[in-house]
Design a binder for these strands. Structure first.
Ligand SMILES: NC(=O)c1ccc[n+]([C@@H]2O[C@H](COP(=O)([O-])OP(=O)(O)OC[C@H]3O[C@@H](n4cnc5c(N)ncnc54)[C@H](O)[C@@H]3O)[C@@H](O)[C@H]2O)c1
Ligand SMILES: NC(=O)c1ccc[n+]([C@@H]2O[C@H](COP(=O)([O-])OP(=O)(O)OC[C@H]3O[C@@H](n4cnc5c(N)ncnc54)[C@H](O)[C@@H]3O)[C@@H](O)[C@H]2O)c1
Lengths: 208, 208
DNA sequence: AAAATATTGTGATTATTATCACTATTATTA
DNA sequence: TAATAATAGTGATAATAATCACAATATTTT
């Protein structure tokens, strides 16, 4: 599992991408590394080195072409490789994610939701149906889905993750504030909003 | 602004905290650095060095006391320092965050929401009212609030952030996928779920 | 046309972070 | 009680990441 591009660089690529969208909307064709660096408060040589990694050449006194750069980042990050996923837990967070229509632009397609609450099962949002959790193994196999977005309460998270893994799930985007135990071959990415808030607060408010 | 504890360490402290909650719930009194390290797939010496920073001593052959360690992390990260905040944008994400009753345990108190949609203004959730955005300057001053959680659509984010800054806001937890321009003295923490998904996908699915 | 300026590209350097390797200590086992 | 094993604590080392410094180049200005 040798990554050509480090996670640190990938993180910055996503930031560059946000800025490039803005420039594109404003109709600006070229952008320079000092401009980007100033926005992100990083060193401009860093920006150039990152773009070099994508084999993206700039032009002296001009900068980089916004359109090319954006496409280059999108190719690298696999925007056009469709990634089908299920959401498990049709609660506040699960439904918010399901209703967000922008994920498909980034390669993420939510096909359906799963829940164990009989009231929720059967409901539909934007062509996305809520199924009973017991249907997960069958549908995961039939639709060839191996990615889930886990948005169940903390107390249920490990149990539900186990069930997902049994159902053939290989990638879990985990929104519960729990460190999941998964067998090797299964990958977890934690979206821990509480942890994120704590980091924010420490950096800016507490630890100064 | 010299931080005694680096952001990297703070990030791990939040992870340790999740694990400690689990141990506490299971009634286990002590935990060792190799145990924690195994859960997080990091080096055990790293764990010990982090705990040393908090002046938390362990005991040979036993480990660290779960209760002490948890309190120590909570003190360091300022759990008991109450931080009042407003949510701007009572949409899918804003409401999900407003309904989450667990933030107060970590020091974050959401006092109210703001929106510009007349249908939403006046509604109430869990004692949290939705005010018209025009009320922000007044309420921020009266309630002495300088933290906002920004959950408006991408296109409005910069404009609304500008207004928040004019209203005296100093800390912005930004959920919109936009790099905000703010004057110095104002601090932004980005919670970019799209960017996070891209990192997840690159690490595990694309770039392998 | 020449000078001034802004920018890329990149090797060298520095800073930060993580790991290794080992000693000291203490509980458990024989 | 002695031997064994698990763990904390920590300096040395390695790996990773960010910054600096500057030559090369292209555009703009005079
Ligand atoms: N709401 C937030 O703002 C917020 C913030 C930080 C963290 N989180 C975390 O995100 C997760 C979801 O939060 P939420 O506010 O959406 O919770 P929620 O209670 O609104 O939704 C959870 C959903 O999971 C379903 N569920 C419960 N057990 C299940 C099972 N065994 N199988 C299938 N579905 C099951 C419930 O029926 C419910 O619909 C939680 O782990 C929470 O800690 C939420
Ligand atoms: N929903 C998701 O899962 C998701 C995922 C990733 C990112 N985001 C980002 O989070 C943000 C919120 O997303 P959402 O799905 O909750 O959007 P939403 O449309 O459901 O909610 C946005 C809210 O902001 C309000 N608003 C708009 N302009 C305003 C203004 N000028 N002043 C005050 N309020 C205003 C709207 O009335 C609405 O209630 C967006 O920037 C979105 O890109 C959302």
């Amino acid at each position: 599992m040798d990554q050509k591009i480090s996670q640190k660089v990938v993180e910055r690529l996503t930031l560059y991408h946000s800025i490039l969208i803005e420039y594109l909307e404003e109709g600006i064709e070229a952008i320079s590394s000092p401009q980007i660096a100033a926005r992100l408060k990083i060193d401009d040589s860093q920006v150039r080195k990152d773009f070099k990694l994508l084999n993206n050449a700039g032009k002296c006194r001009v900068g980089y072409l916004v359109k090319d750069l954006k496409e280059s980042i999108e190719n690298t990050l696999g925007f056009s490789a469709p990634k089908d996923a299920f959401i498990i837990g049709a609660g506040n967070v699960g439904l918010a994610l399901a209703k967000y229509d922008n994920f498909t632009n980034y390669g993420l397609n939510v096909l359906a939701l799963f829940d164990n609450d009989p009231i929720k099962v059967g409901m539909e949002f934007d062509n996305k149906q809520i199924f009973h959790i017991s249907k997960l193994p069958n549908l995961a196999e039939r639709l060839n889905v191996d990615i889930v977005i886990l948005t169940v309460p903390r107390q249920q998270a490990q149990k539900v993750a186990d069930f997902a893994v049994e159902s053939g799930i290989k990638y879990i985007w985990n929104f519960s504030p729990v460190i999941l135990r998964v067998p090797s071959g299964v990958n977890v990415w934690n979206e821990n909003l509480i942890a994120s808030f704590l980091q924010f607060a420490y950096k800016n408010i507490i630890g100064s």
